[in-house]
Amino acid sequence: FKEKSRGVLREWYAHNPYPSPREKRELAEATGLTTTQVSNWFKNRRQRDR
Rank of each mutant, 00 (worst) to 15 (best):
S5Y: 09
S20Y: 02
W41E: 03
S5F: 06
E3S: 09
K43E: 12
H15K: 12
R25N: 15
L9Y: 08
A14R: 08
W41Y: 15
R48S: 11
P21V: 11
T31H: 03
R25Y: 14
V8M: 12
L9M: 03
T35N: 11
T31G: 05
E3I: 03
P19K: 01
N40R: 13
L33H: 07
N16K: 00
E29A: 05
G32P: 02
L9V: 02
L33P: 00
K4H: 13
N40G: 09
V8R: 06
F1C: 07
S39P: 01
R22Q: 11
N44F: 02
W41H: 03
Y13E: 04
V38G: 04
R48T: 12
G32T: 04
T31K: 04
D49E: 11
W41D: 07
P17G: 05
R6N: 05
R48P: 04
A14Q: 13
R50A: 08
P19G: 00
V38Y: 01
A30T: 13
R10S: 12
Q37N: 06
R22E: 15
K24W: 08
G7I: 15
T36V: 08
R46V: 09
L9Q: 01
T31F: 02
G32R: 07
V38K: 00
P21Y: 06
T34W: 00
N40Q: 06
A30Y: 11
E3H: 07
E11G: 08
T34V: 02
K43F: 06
Q47N: 15
A30M: 09
K4R: 08
E26P: 00
A30S: 13
K24V: 14
Q37L: 04
Y18M: 12
G7S: 14
R10I: 13
P21T: 12
R25Q: 11
E23A: 05
K2F: 11
V38Q: 01
T34F: 01
A28T: 08
V8A: 09
N44S: 08
G32L: 05
V38A: 01
K4Y: 14
Y18R: 11
R45C: 14
A28C: 09
T34R: 05
D49G: 04
R6D: 14
T36D: 15
Q37C: 03
E26Y: 05
P21D: 09
R50D: 11
Q37K: 11
K4V: 07
N40S: 06
F42M: 04
F42K: 02
Y13I: 01
S20A: 06
N16H: 01
T35L: 09
R25I: 10
R22F: 15
T35F: 15
P21K: 07
V8F: 10
E23W: 00
L9W: 00
W41S: 03
K43D: 12
Y18S: 09
N16A: 09
Q37S: 07
R48V: 10
R10H: 10
L9P: 00
G32V: 04
R46S: 06
T34S: 12
R25V: 15
H15V: 14
E26I: 01
T36C: 12
R50W: 09
F42L: 04
N44R: 14
R6P: 08
F1Y: 12
H15A: 13
N40D: 11
T31N: 05
E3Q: 04
R10M: 12
T34M: 06
K43Q: 02
T34Y: 04
S39K: 08
R46T: 07
R48K: 13
L9E: 01
E23D: 10
E26H: 04
T35R: 10
N44A: 05
R22V: 15
R22C: 14
V8G: 03
G7K: 12
A30P: 01
K24E: 15
S20P: 05
A14F: 05
T36F: 05
K24A: 12
S20K: 07
R25A: 15
F1G: 07
K4N: 14
T36Y: 09
E11H: 03
R46L: 07
N44W: 02
L27W: 02
F42R: 02
T34H: 06
L33C: 05
R45M: 09
E11M: 04
R46M: 06
D49F: 04
E29P: 01
Q37A: 08
T31C: 10
K24Q: 15
R25D: 13
R6A: 08
R48G: 12
H15D: 14
H15Y: 10
S20D: 12
L27N: 01
E3F: 03
T36G: 12
L27A: 00
Q47T: 09
F42Y: 01
K4S: 14
V8P: 05
E29I: 09
E11I: 01
R22N: 14
D49Y: 13
R10D: 13
N40P: 00
L33K: 09
P19A: 03
Q37M: 07
S20C: 15
T34G: 08
A28F: 00
A30Q: 11
E29D: 14
E26R: 02
S5D: 07
A28L: 01
A14M: 10
R45E: 15
S20M: 11
S5E: 13
N16Q: 07
T36M: 07
S5V: 13
R48M: 08
E29L: 02
S5H: 01
P17Y: 06
P17H: 05
D49Q: 12
